[in-house]
């Protein structure tokens, strides 16, 4: 039986009827049409589905949609601010940190929460901060470079 949940996504309130066995990533992609959140494995291994849930980056394929009831989520669609792209997004573009782009939304969100918490991370902390996000294309170095370039 579907359950009605109330969730705030990118500062917008939504009421969604979800099945108990529906994952958060599926709800975001298929019910809300926020397809920037990707599904690369569905098993918590790749980080393509990363969203920020109440301030913490998580793999949204490991969270049930019902568990998002009453909570706040930021997806990649919510990263761009009123003044345009987030500095991290700009840096990703400039540093060549994007290839196929499938890992990019998750990477950006992981990097964003890292910087939100720790604006001046060391290289090791950056690597640690994106360690849950797999990228098969870039070899990570240009991504690390991009994050470094916007840290304080």
């Amino acid at each position: 039986m579907k359950k009605l949940i109330r969730v705030t996504v990118n500062d917008m309130e939504y009421e969604v009827a979800v099945k108990p066995n529906q994952t958060l990533v599926d709800m975001l992609r298929y019910d809300l049409g926020l397809t920037g959140t990707k599904n690369g494995c569905g098993e918590g291994d790749c980080g393509a589905c990363t969203v920020i849930l109440d301030g913490t980056p998580v793999s949204s394929c490991l969270v049930l949609a019902v568990q998002a009831d009453g909570r706040a989520i930021t997806t990649i669609e919510g990263v761009e601010g009123k003044d345009g792209l987030h500095p991290l997004q700009k840096a990703f573009i400039e540093k060549g940190a994007v290839q196929c782009g499938f890992c990019t939304p998750g990477m950006v969100l992981s990097a964003k929460s890292l910087l939100d918490e720790n604006p001046g991370p060391s290289e090791e902390e950056i690597r640690e901060g994106i360690s849950g996000n797999l990228c098969r294309c870039t070899g990570y170095l240009q991504i690390i470079d991009a994050v470094k370039s916007v840290s304080k």
């Binding site: 918590g44 980080g47 990363t50 913490t56 980056p57 998580v58 793999s59 640690e128 360690s131 849950g132």
Partner: peptide, 9 residues
């Protein structure tokens, strides 16, 4: 234990 994403959950 796992990656930072896993540790958050």
């Amino acid at each position: 234990l796992g990656s930072c994403l896993v540790r958050n959950l």
